[in-house]
Design a protein around this nucleic acid. Structure first.
Lengths: 136, 136
DNA sequence: CCTTGACCTTCCAATCATGGGAAGGTGTTG
DNA sequence: CAACACCTTCCCATGATTGGAAGGTCAAGG
């Protein structure tokens, strides 16, 4: 299986497959005589794993750790749980931040007449001292 | 007012103030004889505006547009509203995506025993075919 | 036999917002 | 005069991904 087919089947672009290989996330796999990369079902499984983890927002470093656990038969599910729980917490923190932003934005939008006149509470709000957008 | 004081007062780092200047987000302002940048209350107001907009998640390109509107006395609040509304929509989309991720993660975490054994529904879920994390 | 087109290879660059650090100038204080 | 706290410009790194250039490989069709 060439890289294009593996990309198609896994949902990971050929570009990214090469990149993951270059940073050591996946092993430098088999090559054919012509130098083309060759993928089997095992590789495909790994790529799909990565794809799923990316879809859940795990960083490549987190995925590196997840792959280590996945490959390690002597792992404890506690370690996996801890990693995933930490990530969930990050996501929830992010959601909270975004909700604070969206709430402030909605208030500003609500105060704005949205007509042809220049007066605008949105600009006034941004120009004022200090927006509660959490962040930084 | 030197750049350090302006940074302190605006919440925008000196590094970023120079950067904003270099990309034309703020004007190439006044310099003293020694070459040091010099800031007044007007500049400070602008920096605070940028800082607030960043806190609300606006990109620098969106902020560029907002600043244009802010400086333009003949603006219509409708244009400001449209820009902000578009941004709010992006944020809400992002929140929805993150909520989908967090829900899937919570389900996986809930199924995991989190003990010393290797069996782990989290890894199984990631290895399975297709995670509903929205995204990409 | 040669061309076309669809693959593949490596390498370099761009994105976005920010920070780190080097190498050097300026200015005040002890 | 030295120490220190500023400032200047310039280059590089981050994270994940994409784009593109320049070139090799291979099968089908004229």
């Amino acid at each position: 299986m060439q890289i294009g087919a593996a990309a198609e089947a896994s949902g990971v672009s050929a570009k990214m497959i090469r990149h993951y290989e270059s940073i050591g996330l996946i092993a430098n796999g088999a090559r054919r005589d012509n130098g083309y990369r060759d993928y089997d079902q095992r590789d495909l499984h790994e790529l799909r794993f990565i794809r799923s983890a990316r879809d859940l927002g795990f960083s490549l470093e987190e995925i590196r750790a997840l792959l280590d656990l996945w490959r390690n038969k002597a792992r404890s599910s506690r370690d996996v749980y801890a990693l995933a729980a930490r990530h969930l917490h990050q996501i929830e923190t992010k959601i909270t931040e975004l909700q604070a932003m969206s709430q402030t934005l909605r208030q500003l939008l609500h105060a704005c007449h949205s007509d042809q006149r220049p007066e605008c509470p949105i600009l006034d709000g941004l120009g004022g001292e200090g927006i509660r957008g959490v962040h930084r």
